[in-house]
Simulated assay, not measured.
Amino acid sequence: MSRKSVSFRAKEINSDVAQIRDLAISIGAVHEERWDETMGPTPFPGVSALRSWDHHLLNRYKPFYLPFCDLCCICTYGKCDLTGDKRGACGITMPAQQSRMVLIAACIGAATHTSHARHLLSHVIEQFGSDCPVNVGGTSVEVEAPISRLVCGVKPETLGDLEPVLDYCENQITQLLAAAHTGQEGNNLDFESKVFHAGMIDHVGMEVADLAQVSALGYP
Score class of each variant (00 low, 15 high):
S2V: 03
R3C: 08
S5C: 04
S5N: 14
S7P: 04
A10Y: 14
E12H: 13
S15D: 11
D16T: 14
A18N: 05
I20L: 10
L23M: 00
A24F: 12
A24S: 15
S26G: 02
S26Q: 08
G28C: 06
A29G: 00
H31F: 07
R34N: 15
W35D: 15
D36P: 01
M39F: 11
M39T: 11
P43I: 06
P45S: 10
G46H: 08
A49N: 08
H56K: 15
L57R: 00
L57M: 05
L58Y: 09
R60Q: 07
Y61R: 07
K62F: 01
K62T: 12
P63D: 01
Y65L: 04
F68Q: 11
C69H: 11
C69R: 14
L71T: 08
C73Y: 09
C75D: 14
D81M: 01
D81G: 04
L82I: 05
L82F: 02
D85K: 15
D85R: 10
D85G: 14
D85T: 14
K86I: 05
R87I: 14
R87L: 12
G91H: 01
I92H: 01
T93P: 11
T93D: 12
T93L: 00
Q97H: 15
S99Y: 00
S99I: 04
R100F: 09
C107S: 07
C107Y: 06
G109A: 04
A111T: 00
S115Q: 10
H116V: 11
A117V: 01
H119P: 02
E126S: 15
F128W: 09
G129P: 06
S130A: 15
P133V: 07
P133Q: 12
V134R: 05
N135F: 06
N135G: 03
T139Y: 02
S140L: 01
S140R: 08
V141D: 09
V143P: 01
E144P: 05
A145D: 09
C152D: 00
G153P: 07
K155Q: 10
K155T: 10
G160H: 05
E163W: 04
E163P: 03
D167K: 06
C169S: 07
E170V: 06
Q172G: 02
I173A: 12
T174V: 14
Q175T: 06
A178H: 13
A179N: 14
H181Q: 13
H181V: 03
T182P: 09
T182Q: 13
Q184E: 15
G186R: 07
G186C: 00
E192V: 02
E192Q: 13
S193Q: 08
K194Y: 13
V195D: 04
F196S: 12
A198N: 08
G199V: 01
D202K: 13
E207A: 02
A209E: 08
A209C: 09
D210G: 04
L211W: 03
L211V: 06
A212W: 04
Q213V: 06
S215Y: 02
L217K: 07
L217V: 06
P220G: 12
